[in-house]
Design a protein around this nucleic acid. Structure first.
Length: 111
DNA sequence: AAGTTGACGGATG
DNA sequence: TCATCCGCCAACT
């Protein structure tokens, strides 16, 4: 089975998964990578999201780090933006960018 | 062209 | 809980 492993194809699969994360839930970079069929490529997910342009219609703010923490640098405009968007959906994030995965992580039924 | 960095994460101490 | 190491891939210098 020749699977397409080009960068753009992998990015496409990553965005497909991110698009499925329900409002008010979050997924970790590693989780997105797994669901996209790219195990152990969490870093690639971060790179893919970083390549998004300002007006992207993708819920990128629902992707957080495995410790249950916003990965964007504190103090950055995007970090603040992510916090605001999550808060708007009812996800509580504390001053250090931490949140409860226990309460908010997306648990898809399959794939 | 080679080294560094980063929106990662699991393992380890 | 925090720090460090290391594998992973792409972008940047």
């Amino acid at each position: 089975m020749g699977e397409d492993n080009t960068k753009s194809e992998r990015y496409r699969r990553i965005f497909e998964v991110v698009r499925r994360i329900p409002k008010g839930r979050v997924a970790t970079y590693g989780q997105v990578a797994d669901l996209a069929g790219l195990p152990r490529h969490a870093r690639l997910v971060g790179y893919a999201l970083n390549s998004l342009k300002a007006g992207a219609r993708l819920p990128w703010h629902r992707v957080v780090g495995s410790p249950g923490r916003i990965s964007l640098p504190e103090g950055s405009e995007s970090h603040y933006e992510q916090r605001a968007r999550l808060a708007m959906e009812g996800v509580e994030v504390d001053v250090d960018g931490r949140l409860s995965l226990r309460r908010h992580q997306w648990r898809p039924r399959s794939r």
